[in-house]
């Protein structure tokens, strides 16, 4: 089982709606550790994504995902605009030449996204950023290539969720929480929560598709 370009488009529109609904939760997570605007930035990005994707007749998953990243990159600003813009732009480009999104493509997407983000921001796993959800998801996706994409997405989402939970025990090294020291223990990273919601929404879409 795999997703055709238009399904990828519809999936991303569902992701956008899910993030928009989650805005208060995401902002609250950022309020605990940062400046409280993560949900607002993501919502702004997702509204730009919807404007891009709604009229689109996509030729490839790459096109959908790169457009998603570009819309986020140019509308959001802030740390998450650069970070999530990079996720979809770098991740999307890794799908060049692929007509559909299957579990192998998912692994490529997440791995390229992870590398792009790490290169862009200099953070590594354990630094209490969205990488702590993205890296385990990418890892898990590599393990489950060959499975239907819905199952692979579900597995990746679970890994992201576990990584997001694990981020509670980390001390931030990047972003606005980096000077908090031990005061950030117990709170999950806001960006990791966004990654989790995104993958969970993708998994739910793929399961229903």
């Amino acid at each position: 089982m795999e997703l055709n370009p238009n399904q990828v488009r519809l999936m991303m529109l569902q992701v956008a709606d899910a993030i928009i609904v989650a805005e208060p939760k995401l902002s609250q997570a950022d309020r605990d550790l940062g400046d409280g605007d993560h949900g607002l930035g993501m919502k702004r990005g997702m509204e730009a994504v919807k404007a891009q994707l709604e009229p689109m007749e996509p030729a490839s998953p790459e096109q959908v995902l790169v457009a998603t990243g570009t819309a986020m990159m140019t509308s959001m600003g802030g740390a998450s605009g650069a970070i999530f813009g990079t996720v979809y732009r770098a991740g999307g480009k890794a799908l060049a030449g692929r007509a559909t999104l299957d579990s192998e493509g998912l692994a490529l997407f997440l791995q390229a996204a992870l590398e792009g983000v790490m290169k862009r921001g200099g953070a590594k796993p354990g630094d209490k950023t969205m990488i702590d959800a993205l890296a385990p998801a990418a890892e898990k996706a590599k393990e489950v290539t060959g499975q239907p994409v819905a199952d692979a997405l579900a597995a990746a989402a679970d890994a992201a969720e576990a990584g997001k939970e694990a981020s509670k025990d980390m001390i931030a090294q990047f972003g606005r929480a980096k000077t908090l020291g031990e005061a950030c223990l117990g709170f999950p990273d806001a960006g990791a929560l966004s990654v989790t919601i995104m993958l969970q929404t993708m998994a739910a879409f793929a399961k229903a598709a």
């Binding site: 400046d35 409280g36 605007d37 607002l40 930035g41 702004r44 990159m73 140019t74 509308s75 959001m76 600003g77 802030g78 740390a79 605009g81 650069a82 813009g85």
Partner: peptide, 12 residues
């Protein structure tokens, strides 16, 4: 100029 509390995006 970025949005409220957000760095300006690269195109700006």
């Amino acid at each position: 100029v970025g949005d409220i509390f957000a760095a300006p995006p690269p195109d700006i």
